[in-house]
């Protein structure tokens, strides 16, 4: 348990409001190292329930790295070490008691490149509920699959070919399939790492609409390269630069009157 007294009592260079009223995830003084190299430096931020927050910043600034800390996907990289504290519902997720399996079931993830399993569409969505034992019968499983596909807006397009391979779908459809796969596990939070960067504008528009819908039920953290996208879908925006969290705040505010010079330079296209 992270004690209540010190969570809102933290030194940080970050400009803007890093705290939220109803925090789901609380990150404090997070440092991340790849071997000797430090990729994230002293980042503190809250992520609220049912908010959509976007991470922006130039490439290589550590957005993905930070995002992957939130569901401990960095555990899969041998050289990666995380310091500081990150808690979900006030429970430290790097605590020994926490099992990554349960953690990742609560915090779903969607990746930059759509990565459906080389299995049928149905199997892709049903995979999570199956391994976690979330359904006790075929009907329940069918129901979860159908519902998840509906929620991800894919149902109408694939309902007649659930048994065909997931890899046969178009890029945008594949990405929505991956989102369906993530929400089939009933997570609380969904992390998205540049989910639209491999997609064309029409597919991107569909995903953005979907994210807006999902934001009503889930906390969503989305890394994006497109400032328009961040502006369109997120309530809050965090700007990273060289591993540091420079500025956080209401999206509107960040994009209209950033306080920090670097943020302004990036927003106006001078850092890319």
């Amino acid at each position: 348990m992270v004690s209540n007294s010190n969570i809102n009592n933290v030194k940080t260079k970050t400009i803007g409001e890093i705290f939220s009223k109803d925090p789901k995830i609380i990150c404090r003084n997070v440092d991340v190292f790849y071997g000797e190299k430090q990729a994230i430096k002293d980042v503190s931020i809250d992520i609220a329930s049912r908010e959509i927050i976007s991470f922006i910043g130039p490439s290589g600034c550590g957005k993905s790295t930070f995002l992957r800390c939130l569901n401990r996907m960095n555990d899969t990289i041998d050289t990666c070490k995380v310091k500081g504290s990150i808690s979900l519902d006030k429970e430290d997720i790097y605590d020994e008691k926490i099992d990554v399996v349960t953690l990742r079931a609560k915090i779903g993830m969607v990746f930059q490149k759509p990565n459906p399993f080389p299995k049928s569409i149905y199997e892709n969505v049903a995979y999570g509920p199956k391994i976690h034992g979330l359904s006790s019968s075929k009907e329940e499983l069918d129901f979860i699959v159908e519902n998840s596909l509906k929620d991800s807006g894919l149902w109408e397009e694939v309902k007649d070919r659930l048994q065909s391979p997931g890899t046969g779908l178009s890029g945008g459809q594949q990405q929505r399939l991956c989102i369906a796969r993530a929400i089939a596990v009933s997570p609380e939070i969904i992390l998205m790492d540049e989910p639209c960067s491999a997609l064309d504008p029409i597919a991107t528009a569909k995903i953005e609409e979907l994210i807006n819908q999902l934001g009503k039920n889930y906390s969503i953290v989305i890394v994006t390269h497109s400032m328009q996208q961040a502006a369109r879908i997120s309530q809050r925006t965090a700007y990273f630069h060289l591993g540091e969290l420079i500025e956080v705040g209401e999206t509107k505010k960040i994009f209209t009157m950033p306080e920090d010079k670097q943020t302004e330079a990036y927003i106006s296209g001078r850092i890319g």
Binding site: M73, V101, T102, M109, N115, R181, V185
Partner: peptide
């Protein structure tokens, strides 16, 4: 591809799974 592993781990699979 690593992306397939990521997909599995991202859903909360164990290594075995």
């Amino acid at each position: 591809p690593q992306s397939l592993r990521d997909a599995g781990y991202g859903l909360g699979s164990t290594k075995n799974e």
